[in-house]
């Protein structure tokens, strides 16, 4: 009986430790789930092919709004040249942003994008974005950055307006910055 008790207890301890691991596994699992489903406002992946062969829906106009934020810890200015654009689904468009380092130090920043409403995020594809990589600004530097994007022609009719929001954070020291479009960057890098 004592042996049986030990066996039961051992199995249950292993189960408890596995569940501790599962708590950590939830973090990447959610990212995978969000990538697949486009939930959580994370923007979809782009392939050049999808953009090149894209059909442009000339009958529809969608309003794209831009929202710019800077984390309070980062002494930068960040603005869009135009805060709204009207685009046809399927058409390649470009938006220009201005960023300025107000401090007397060189700083590396990273922009984190988000799309609202979340249903629209599946159809919002960026082919080029300053958010794909870290941005380094030397002291006092001001520069223009672009986002090239396509709103998918399959966008549901009911969505007339969408918002692309960026928040600039100071980049952590480590190289392996986790941001939502890493796979997109890799896809683009692969295509040269």
């Amino acid at each position: 009986m004592a042996e049986a008790t030990t066996r039961t207890a051992q199995k249950l301890f292993v189960f408890a430790i596995a569940m501790f691991g599962f708590g950590y596994a939830m973090v990447p699992l959610y990212d995978v789930l969000c990538d697949i489903t486009g939930l959580n406002g994370k923007t979809g992946e782009t392939t050049i092919a999808a953009v090149a062969s894209g059909y442009v829906d000339k009958d529809r106009l969608v309003t794209v709004q831009f929202d710019t934020n800077v984390n309070t810890a980062l002494p930068w200015n960040f603005k869009a040249i135009e805060y709204t654009m009207k685009v046809h689904p399927g058409e390649i468009s470009e938006a220009v942003f201005v960023v300025e380092n107000k401090s007397d130090k060189d700083i590396v920043g990273q922009a984190v994008p988000s799309v609202a409403p979340s249903q629209a995020s599946l159809y919002f594809n960026k082919t080029e974005c300053f958010c794909f990589t870290n941005q380094t600004l030397v002291a006092g530097e001001r520069k223009e950055m672009i986002v090239r994007f396509v709103v998918g022609a399959e966008l549901p009719e009911k969505i007339k307006t969408m918002t692309l929001s960026y928040t600039f954070f100071e980049a952590p020291d480590s190289e392996d910055v986790v941001f939502s479009n890493k796979s997109t960057v890799e896809a683009i890098d692969a295509k040269g």
């Binding site: 408890a16 596995a18 569940m19 501790f20 599962f22 708590g23 950590y24």
Partner: peptide
Amino acid sequence: AAMPVLAG
């Protein structure tokens, strides 16, 4: 099943 997830 649940307490270790909170611990994590």
